[in-house]
Design a protein around this nucleic acid. Sequence first.
DNA 1: CAGAAACTTTGACCCAGATCAATATCGATG
DNA 2: CATCGATATTGATCTGGGTCAAAGTTTCTG
Lengths: 242, 242
Amino acid sequence: MHFEFNERDGCKACPIRHRAVCARCDEDELIILEGMKSYKTIEQGEPIIWRGDELQHISSVVSGIASLSRTLEDGRTQVVGLLLPSDFIGSPGRETVDFDVTAVTDVTLCRFERKSFEKLVQDVPHIAQRVMEMALDELNAAREWMVLLGRKTAREKIATFIEMVIRRDNVPVHADEPHILPLTREEIANFLGLTLETVSRQLSSMKKDGILTFADRRKFTVLDLAALQEETGDDADGGMIV
Amino acid sequence: MHFEFNERDGCKACPIRHRAVCARCDEDELIILEGMKSYKTIEQGEPIIWRGDELQHISSVVSGIASLSRTLEDGRTQVVGLLLPSDFIGSPGRETVDFDVTAVTDVTLCRFERKSFEKLVQDVPHIAQRVMEMALDELNAAREWMVLLGRKTAREKIATFIEMVIRRDNVPVHADEPHILPLTREEIANFLGLTLETVSRQLSSMKKDGILTFADRRKFTVLDLAALQEETGDDADGGMIV
DNA sequence: CAGAAACTTTGACCCAGATCAATATCGATG
DNA sequence: CATCGATATTGATCTGGGTCAAAGTTTCTG
């Protein structure tokens, strides 16, 4: 059984093609991948899997946004990450999830039976390498977020969050289309370690300061990107040495 | 050139043997590993590498403790992780580090020329798998820490930190030897997203409440483990479903 | 072993952001 | 299109932890 990796023309039907995690789509390979995958849709607001639940599948987000979060006994909730299309739910080698996973929007998942996925990781070297790279990227993002949670002010947190949102759906150049906040005020608060009132106040304040405008609760446009970036608390150049 | 993986008797001289990241120590393998590694010692308090610096080596901590941190322009610092023996500095596929790495104690590193290490990751499937597992573990730990930073009170943060320290050097059973705080008050503060005064006050308060005693600034004993764990804010059973 | 530098504790006060509360707006539903 | 529940805004007040300041320890150095 031979597997090879090919980034360029990964199999069209294979969801681990996202982020180019895919073995060469010759017949052998396709059979295995086809045999073990299944799709599932979860409605907005519904839980996908709870912390501690046994992982039957490793899934990849095909469309929509899911959140990873932890809630303390008294209800305090911290969102520790957002899962966007191509992100995985569950990791090879783990039998349970350590965080609650919830559909923030309607979410479509492509699921692999966990054992098969783990076998794939073992048999196809480039898949382990890809998962490794993805994990390292996310680790970096998580650490970056730790700086925000531990040291940034409410205003800096909001500015950083908005900047992240507009960076994410990076419209070509100078498309003035409004951006969409993917989260409610409360979800933003739980992501930033704030209360929803503080989130609301900071957004209002940025509106007053002419940095943003809102067409409605979710739809906004950045009027002054430079000012926004100034407020994030990060180095202007994203940390490169000049 | 064939490589195989053997957890049990990984090569004694190979530092990536830590955490069992090691190929079978036949001659081919040894030559490669021996040829590319070098040791280096960094004194307590000295920087190991700065954020943005080009990574010449991937290193593994052999002894001592290093911290990963980020400092904002105005001096606010957040420690995003501690590197203990067997942890890596630098990741295959990255040309720079994204955080400052500092020696918290005297640190000995085992360094690999980066290109060679990356080649090794590509050539020896089990090494990529091992790095993948390590990255996934650290990702989990980072997310756990995000909950602490975003939602826990000062007292809960301190309790969690102390619990982490005693869990780390998990003395057999009932050894009443004192534990050692590996960090100064200021370093603890930067790790927990607090000020050093708050750290000091909380430690005093726990002393007053009979949870801890201090033999000196660094040396402490836990008098009431149950109470300590009660204060961490986490579920009693570490999150397992009962 | 004196004197200094580094680290820690403790106190007094203050403020960013939490909490509590009232109102306003949106969007779904019959 | 009126009603209701969910979501958001805004105001008033409170407080945990930050800030500023002054001792008190420990450790290093000559």
